Computed example of a mutant assay.
Amino acid sequence: MNHCLPLRSESCANCRVRELCLLVGLDTADARRLDLIIPQRMKVKKGAVLFHLGDPMRYLYAIHHGFFKTTFCSEDGREQLTGFQMPGELLGIDAISSGDYACDAIALEDSEVCPIRFTQLERLARELPSLQHNLNRTLSQELVRDHEVLMWMGNLKAQERLGAFLLDLATRMQRRGYSPHAFVLRMTREDIGAYLGLRLETVCRAIAYLRNNDIVRISGRAVEIVSQERLKALVSGCSSPRKLRSVQERLC
């Protein structure tokens, strides 16, 4: 059964996430040139794999709608979840150096992607400085995010890692025009644990900590950030209940 289905094409100029993708700073004529190297938008069903680790890289995929996770398995069979991607972000950029995809990309919900043939994108970027700048910016953002996750893993306690993860999601949601205070998690608690290097029971305890200290309410996959200030204070090291109460009193 085919889990990746072609859809009717839509102009990049009319895309609702164009300001988050490779189109920033491109005029209408240049946007049309980018249109020409995107053969047809594709629908990817929930749970389907867009590409596999080791597959030859032909396309980068711009997410038009939906959410993905990326994972890879080590030689001894251990699976590592490396990221969650949302509309306006690119899948496959970690394959640029080797020419092969470095992970599996799996849809967390019914999603839509725009396949961009990489060889044509390289040629076009050489002709359009704004497009080259946007591609470089995207690569840099991915590098910065990887560094942030390494910092979480090496320096933060479990509840602080979860807090940093939720703050990152809230910021990315806000950039897409959604509420940074209330949103729905597309990933499971197991996925969150695999991403943050935590066991499932540790994730559950961290959720309980945030809930009991009235910082974040999580019911099922629905998230409500009660106080972004206190959540930021938690991530910055004010993790004890006494310090959190002190932060709350100062904010009041």
Rank of each mutant, 00 (worst) to 15 (best):
L7C: 10
L135Y: 10
Q120C: 06
A62S: 14
A206N: 09
F118M: 05
V223E: 00
V216H: 00
L22K: 07
M57S: 12
L231E: 01
C73W: 10
L5D: 11
D27C: 06
Q228D: 07
T70Q: 09
S179F: 03
L121I: 06
R58E: 05
L231N: 01
G92E: 00
R78L: 09
A208F: 06
R33G: 02
C4T: 15
L231A: 02
Y101M: 12
V24D: 14
I106F: 02
L23R: 03
L23K: 02
T188H: 00
A62N: 14
D100C: 13
I207W: 02
R32G: 07
L60R: 07
T82W: 11
A170H: 05
C252T: 15
L210H: 03
R41T: 12
R117F: 12
V226C: 13
D76I: 14
T171N: 10
D100Y: 12
S227Q: 02
T202D: 08
R32D: 10
K69P: 01
M86I: 07
K43T: 14
N134Q: 11
L166N: 02
S140E: 11
V216K: 00
T82C: 12
N212F: 09
N2C: 10
L162Y: 11
R230F: 04
S98F: 00
D168F: 09
Y101D: 07
L20S: 04
L50M: 08
S111Y: 03
G88P: 03
V184D: 11
F183V: 08
E75A: 12
Q141C: 12
G88K: 03
Q85C: 11
M187K: 04
S98N: 08
E19H: 14
G163M: 05
F183R: 03
R33F: 05
I96A: 01
N213V: 02
A164Y: 07
V226W: 10
E127N: 12
V247D: 06
T82D: 15
L121M: 05
R242Y: 15
R161K: 15
L108G: 04
V149T: 08
L200M: 08
L156E: 00
D30R: 13
A13E: 15
S111R: 07
